[in-house]
């Protein structure tokens, strides 16, 4: 069972990789068209114009544009294809990418479940399993978002990239054999705590994708044409990305809060104190405070939306620090990493 799980992980990585390439093909074909046809820049200008109108003067919060549909992308795709084969192929590649992502997520789920069966417990006993679960939540939530908002499809390039990197890293650096839980982890609070942490981390992970996309697209809509911004040419409108970023974070934050509280309850039972400033606890506190800062920043009209979004990204970096940095660099009671 455990070997099966390992194989499934490898297949899932491959599938994500293929999905990523497929997304990239869509990008490339779309761009090729833009280069090939002189009319395209004009269309883009329309798009940029809408964006600019949406954003108002450069300093105004983008919020005022919330109500506008993602016009540029819609226009680009809805344009009469008139013999434009490469754009068609691009769309096809994009659609294929989504289906392959779904397949990859299914493999990913199967890998996680078989791992759990092999261990005869929830598959959250060590860092490898944790990363497996968190990234699955991210992928599944992505598909759910995509189901409701197909126009976000192009973000899939970033998402699959994240998946490939995370899973490959997990397989190469974090892999451990299946073992039962240590006594410290044998508690139902463990299930409550780790499942909610995984879930919220997965959503936060997914939240990074529109956050980064927003920052790029926002720059693009404001007329930046240098390297990372040009990538955003064919992304959905900035306002929508920003809102999705907020929605995901607002959804994950209470779950994360609950997870931290559950962790404190568990720590009280296991170690006699709800909070002891162990490195992991310290970083959970830091993440929590940074995300609270993001919610505050977004609710403060004088703070620009891209500043707020940077805070969200910073929040995720602190989550990563907690997952990898603390497990590798510090020793604490959460001797959970299982990497030696």
């Amino acid at each position: 069972m455990s070997a099966l799980s390992d194989q499934l992980v490898t297949f899932a990585i491959l599938a994500y990789l293929i999905a990523m390439i497929s997304h990239a093909v869509e990008y490339a074909l779309g761009n090729a068209r833009a280069v090939a046809r002189p009319a395209a820049p004009a269309r883009e200008l329309v798009g940029a114009g809408v964006g600019a109108r949406a954003g108002g003067p450069v300093d105004a919060p983008v919020a005022s544009a919330d109500a506008l549909p993602d016009a540029p992308i819609a226009k680009a795709d809805a344009a009469p294809a008139g013999g434009d084969r490469s754009a068609d192929r691009g769309l096809l590649a994009g659609r294929a990418a989504v289906w392959i992502t779904a397949l990859a997520a299914a493999l990913h789920l199967a890998a996680t479940v078989t791992r759990g069966i092999a261990a005869d417990r929830m598959p959250w006993g060590n860092m490898y399993e944790f990363v497996l679960t968190v990234s699955f939540v991210g992928a599944a939530a992505w598909l759910a978002v995509l189901w409701k908002r197909p126009s976000l499809r192009r973000l899939g390039l970033f998402l699959t990239l994240v998946m490939v990197l995370l899973l490959a890293f997990a397989e190469m650096k974090l892999y451990v054999e299946v073992v039962p839980l240590t006594p410290a982890l044998q508690s139902y609070w463990f299930i409550v705590h780790v499942s909610t942490i995984s879930f919220s981390s997965g959503i936060f992970l997914l939240g990074v994708v529109p956050a980064v996309a927003f920052l790029m697209r926002n720059g693009y809509e404001r007329g930046r044409r240098s390297f990372p911004y040009t990538l955003a040419k064919r992304l959905p409108a900035a306002a929508g990305l920003e809102r999705l970023t907020f929605t995901l974070h607002a959804f994950a934050f209470p779950i994360f809060t609950f997870a931290v509280i559950a962790g404190a309850i568990w720590a009280e039972a296991a170690w006699g104190r709800p909070w002891g400033w162990d490195p992991k606890e310290t970083w959970a506190f830091i993440s929590w405070v940074v995300y609270a800062g993001y919610l505050h920043a977004r609710a403060t009209p004088s703070v620009r939306r891209n500043v707020a979004t940077w805070i969200a990204i910073l929040g995720f970096l602190t989550m990563l620090m907690n997952l990898f940095g603390v497990n590798f660099f510090f020793t604490g009671l959460h001797s959970y990493a299982g990497v030696s």
Partner: peptide, 27 residues
């Protein structure tokens, strides 16, 4: 109007510009 699922699950802020959601699929 743009029922982003997590927002829906959470009852949280939905996305405006919902129609755009289906626009792209229509080529």
């Amino acid at each position: 109007a743009g029922d982003v699922t997590p927002g829906e699950l959470a009852g949280g802020g939905h996305d405006a510009g919902g129609p755009a959601g289906t626009r792209e699929g229509a080529q």
